[in-house]
Design a protein around this nucleic acid. Structure first.
Lengths: 340, 340
DNA sequence: GCACCGAATGTTACCGGGAACAATTCATTT
DNA sequence: AAATGAATTGTTCCCGGTAACATTCGGTGC
C-alpha cells in the first residue's frame, strides 16, 4: 500500500524522496556515526514509507562480503549434527548472517568437493563443517577455499578453526555412573571409528575404564544405526559376561534394547544401557534411557562467534568449555547380585 | 595452483586470456547457442585453468533472480517438516537452486512476518512454507511478498500454490488396519487442531470411523509431543472403553505407550496403538510401532518442481498423488476377546 | 560483384549498493 | 574576523555480471 509503483524501491529513490544523496542513505543504513539526527530521521521515514529493503546481492557485490555462512553437514540423519545446525542457524540469523547448508551422504550422495564448490560459488564468507569423519577432513585439507573454515571436531587442528563438545566429560559421566552402580564389566558399543566423535568417545571410555579398573574387552563398532545394534543384540549367543553397555549414541542404544528384549535379556535387570545424545524420544522409550545430553545450542553459538571473529578479523575468542550432562533414567541399575 | 595472483578471477580476466570479449564468456556460461565451437572450447579451457566461478551476487544483481528458494519451517522439531526440508534442499540443489531456511518457534521465537522479511531481504525467487498452522497462513495472507509462494498444506488455496501429502490415504490405511483386526472402539489422539495436517488426519479419521460404524467418541487433542501423550496415558483412570488408539504422530504414540506401561496397560495386549510418520526409531521402540510412512522425498521434489515452474513462468505441473504406506509392526493386535 | 541475412562477436549501459575522496558547514580557537 | 579541524554531505567510480543493441563475418541469390 505504501508505494503504488509496484517495483521495489532502491536506494536512490529513497535518497531523492528524502532530499539527500544516496550515500547519505547508505550511511544511515550502515549506522555511520556522523549523520545529523534530523537527516537520519527523514531518511528512516522515507525508508519506512516505501518499505525499502537494501538489496543484498548489490551489497554483497560492493563489499565482497555476503553475510552468509556455508555449512556442510555430514549425515544429517544423526541427531547431533542436525541439532547443531539448527542452533547455528538461529544464532547466525541473530547476528545478521544467513546460512546455506548442504548435507552429505543423504540420498543423493554429493562429494565434499562438490559441496565446497557449491558453497563457495554461492559466495559464503565462512565455512563450517559439522561432525565429520577423518576421511572428509583429509579431503577438506586438499581443497583451497579462500575463506575461514571451522570444523566441528575434537582436538585442535593447525589447518582449521575447531570447536566441539567435550566428549570426554560426557563419557566420563556415563562410565562413572555405571561404575558407581557397581558395574565392573562394561561393553562399549562405539560409532564408526572413522567418525572423530566416535573415536573420542571410545578413547575416553577406555581411559576411564582403565582408571576404574574395569576389565578391558574389545569394543563393538557400529554404524550409529538402531538397526545395527538390534542385529548385534539378536546375535548374542549366551548370557553376556558384561553387565552394562555404554553405547555411543541413543539410536543404537534403542536398537540394542529392542534386540535384547527379543533375546529375552531385560534392561536394566540383566543389562544396563547408557546412551549418548538425549534424542527427543529417549525419555519415553521403554525403558526410558539413561543418556548423556549435549548442549548443541551452546555449540551453535560458539561456532558463530568463532566464525564471525574470523571473518571480521577480530581476535579469535577462546571457547569456554561446554559442559555435558548425564540424565539418569531407567535403563541403568545395579548389576544383578551386586554386593552393595 | 592455477593462478598465482591469489585473487578470484572475474569474467573479464577470463575474456582477456581467451582473447574474446567478456560477453562471449558470459554467453558460454549461459549456453547461448551461436558460439563457434572453437571459441567455446578456448573459453572453457581458460575457465578451467583459472578455476573461474561466476559471482552469484553479480549475476543476481544483473538478472534480478537469485536462484534461491526461501523456506519457512514451522517447528523443525517435528520429523515430517524436517524430512521435507531435507528432501527439498537436495532436489533444489540438483536443479541449480540454493535454499535458505528459517525455522519458526524454535527457541528464539521469530514471527512469520520477520521470517518473511528476512527471506525477502535475502532476495529469494520463491517462498515455501512447510507444515503450517492455519493462524500462520492467515498471517501470510496479509503479507505482500512479490514472489511465488507455495504452502505445504492440505486443500487448495486461491492465494498460494499448495501441495501436501495425502493425509486421508494414510489415515484410512491406519483405521482400516485397526478395524480389520477387529477393533470397533478407537480413540483418536490428535495433533493441535490449529495444524492443518492434524485437522486433516482428524477429519479423515472421523470419516473413516463413521464408514465402518466405529463408535463416535470425543478425540483427545495433543501438542505433538511425547510428553503430552505420556501425561495423558498416566492420567487414565480405569480400564479404557476403547481398544485401540490412532495417534496423529509417532512421538505421541511413543509417549502414550510409555505412559500406558506405567499404568500397567500393555500394548498391544490390552490396547493397540498406531502412529503416523515412521520416525527412525519407530521400528525399534518397544513394542515396534505400527505406523504410517509418508514419502517426504517425493513431496520435496514436488515442491521444487512447482516452484521452479512458477518462477520460470512455465505452466504449473499437476502434482501426482503421493501415496502413503502402512507399516504393520507390533503395537497393534486383535482386541482382547475378539471373536475372530 | 553486391545486397542481404543469419551467425558470431563486440560495445555500452545498467543492476543497486559501498569505498574513496571532495566539498561544504559549523563550532572553536587565536 | 580568519584559521582550524571535525562533522556532515555529496560526487564519482567500481564491484562482476547480463541486456540490448551494434558490428563484423561468411555464404547465398541474383
Amino acid at each position: 500500500m505504501a508505494n503504488t509503483s509496484a517495483d521495489k524501491p532502491n536506494i536512490r529513490q529513497v535518497a531523492r524522496l528524502a532530499g539527500v544523496s544516496h550515500m547519505t542513505v547508505s550511511r544511515v543504513l550502515n549506522n555511520y556515526p556522523h549523520i545529523k539526527d534530523a537527516t537520519r530521521r527523514r531518511v528512516l521515514e522515507v525508508i519506512e514509507e516505501l518499505d525499502y529493503r537494501p538489496n543484498m546481492a548489490a551489497r554483497a557485490l560492493a563489499t565482497q562480503k555476503s553475510q552468509r555462512i556455508g555449512v556442510i553437514v555430514e549425515s544429517a540423519v544423526e541427531y547431533g549434527p542436525t541439532s547443531t545446525l539448527r542452533a547455528l542457524e538461529s544464532t547466525a540469523r541473530a547476528a545478521g548472517y544467513a546460512v546455506s547448508s548442504i548435507s552429505l551422504g543423504d540420498g543423493d550422495g554429493i562429494s565434499p568437493q562438490e559441496a565446497v564448490d557449491n558453497l563457495t560459488t554461492q559466495g559464503v564468507d565462512a565455512l563450517c563443517v559439522i561432525a565429520p569423519r577423518s576421511s572428509s577432513i583429509a579431503a577438506l585439507r586438499k581443497i583451497s577455499i579462500g575463506v575461514p573454515v571451522l570444523v566441528v571436531k575434537p582436538d585442535r587442528d593447525p589447518t582449521f578453526l575447531t570447536v566441539s563438545l567435550d566428549q570426554q566429560e560426557g563419557t566420563t559421566l556415563a562410565v562413572d555412573h555405571l561404575v558407581s552402580l557397581g558395574h565392573r564389566d562394561i561393553l562399549h558399543l562405539a560409532g564408526p571409528l572413522d567418525w572423530l566423535d566416535a573415536r573420542a568417545r571410545e578413547r575416553a571410555f577406555h581411559a576411564r575404564a582403565k582408571a576404574w579398573g574395569v576389565r578391558e574387552r574389545p569394543i563393538v563398532v557400529g554404524d550409529w544405526s538402531a538397526d545395527f545394534a538390534y542385529d548385534f543384540a539378536r546375535g548374542i549367543r549366551e548370557v553376556p559376561d558384561y553387565t552394562a553397555v555404554f553405547v555411543a549414541n541413543d539410536d543404537m542404544a534403542v536398537g540394542l534394547v529392542h534386540g535384547l528384549s527379543e533375546r529375552g535379556i531385560s534392561v536394566p535387570g540383566e543389562l544396563s544401557v547408557v546412551g549418548f545424545d538425549d534424542v527427543p524420544l529417549a525419555a519415553h522409550v521403554l525403558p526410558p534411557l539413561t543418556t548423556v545430553r549435549q548442549n548443541f545450542r551452546a555449540l551453535g553459538t560458539a561456532i558463530v562467534d568463532l566464525l564471525r571473529a574470523a571473518v571480521e578479523e577480530r581476535e579469535i575468542p577462546r571457547v569456554t568449555r561446554i559442559p555435558a550432562e548425564l540424565l539418569v533414567r531407567s535403563s541403568t541399575a545395579a548389576p544383578r547380585g551386586a554386593e552393595r
